[in-house]
C-alpha cells in the first residue's frame, strides 16, 4: 500500500521547547495506522502538527505527494487532512446540527453539505435525535460522536483521530471502534492515537510507538504485540 500522508524528520514543539525530534511516519492509503505512546509521548503534538495547528520547526509533511508543512490549517482541511482533536473541541453554544454544518465549511465539502449530513446522521442516529441541542450539553460520548461526525462533514481523505475513546464508558468506546472500519470502507485512510493498545492493534495494519517525541519501534499489529517495548509498557503489568 502506498502512503497518503507522510512525515519525514518532523520536528515540532511549543515555543523553544522541542517535543517531536525527527519523527518519520507513513499513513497507508485506505488503511488504519496506529500511534501508540504513554502520556506525554508527543502523540497530540504530532497530530496537531500534521493538521497545521502547530508549525513544524523542521522536516517535511507530504500529502498525496505534495508538501503541506507550510500550508495553513484551513488549506490542509480543504485538501482532505482532517483532525478529530483530543478533548473533542466541539462548539459548546452551537447546536449539534450547526456543529456539523460548520464541519463542511471548506469549499470542497460545502456544496455537498446536506448529503454528507444525512450520511453522518445515518452513522450516528444519536446525533440525529439531538439536532437542535446545544453541543455543550451533550454527554462525553455524544460529544465524541459529534467531533467524529464533524470531522466527516469535511469530506476527509485522511482522518487523524486523537484518542477518540478518551474518557468514554466501555460500551461507548466499543461503538467507536466498531465505526472505524466502516470509515475505511467509505474510502478514508486513518491515523489513530489510542490508549487501548489491544483494540487498536487489532484493527490497525501498522503501528508506531512514540517515546519522548521519537519513534521507538514500528511494525505490524502482531509484530508490535510481540515487541518488549509494547508488551512491557502497555500490556504487561
Amino acid at each position: 500500500m502506498s502512503a497518503i500522508l507522510q512525515a519525514r524528520e518532523l520536528v515540532s514543539g511549543y515555543g523553544d521547547v522541542r517535543i517531536l525530534h525527527a519523527v518519520d511516519l507513513s499513513v497507508a492509503e485506505g488503511g488504519i495506522t496506529a500511534v501508540l505512546g504513554s502520556n506525554g509521548a508527543g502523540k497530540t503534538t504530532l497530530f496537531r502538527t500534521l493538521a497545521g495547528l502547530l508549525a513544524a520547526g523542521a522536516g517535511h509533511i507530504e500529502f498525496c505527494g505534495s508538501p503541506i508543512e507550510t500550508l495553513p490549517s484551513h488549506v490542509r482541511v480543504e485538501r482532505g487532512v482532517v483532525l478529530v482533536p483530543e478533548g473533542r473541541l466541539v462548539f459548546p453554544d452551537m447546536s449539534v446540527e450547526e456543529n456539523l454544518r460548520i464541519g463542511s465549511v471548506n469549499a470542497r465539502a460545502r456544496s455537498k453539505c446536506s448529503k454528507t449530513l444525512s450520511t453522518v446522521y445515518d452513522l450516528f442516529p444519536r446525533l440525529d435525535e439531538r439536532r437542535s441541542q446545544a453541543a455543550g450539553t451533550l454527554s462525553g460520548g455524544e460529544q465524541q460522536m459529534l467531533a467524529l461526525g464533524r470531522g466527516l462533514m469535511a469530506l476527509p481523505k485522511v482522518l487523524l483521530l486523537d484518542e477518540p475513546t478518551l474518557g468514554l464508558a466501555p460500551t461507548m468506546a466499543k461503538q467507536i471502534f466498531e465505526i472505524i472500519p466502516n470509515l475505511v470502507e467509505l474510502g478514508l485512510s486513518i491515523l489513530i492515537a489510542e490508549q487501548d493498545v489491544h483494540r487498536t492493534l487489532q484493527c490497525a495494519q501498522f503501528g508506531y510507538v512514540l517515546e519522548n517525541g521519537k519513534v521507538a519501534v514500528s511494525g505490524t499489529g502482531p509484530e508490535l504485540m510481540q515487541t518488549p517495548a509494547v508488551s512491557e509498557a502497555f500490556l504487561g503489568h
Binding site: A51, L53, H74, L89, F91, E98, I102, V105, A154
Partner: peptide, 23 residues
C-alpha cells in the same frame, strides 16, 4: 455558513482552525 464561521471563531479559535475555517 459565513455567519456560522464567525460564531464558531467567537466560541473557539482552536476548534475553528480544526474544522477548516479560514480564520
Amino acid at each position: 455558513i459565513y455567519g456560522l464561521a464567525v460564531t464558531a471563531l467567537i466560541q473557539s479559535r482552536d476548534a475553528a482552525k480544526v474544522v477548516g475555517i479560514n480564520v
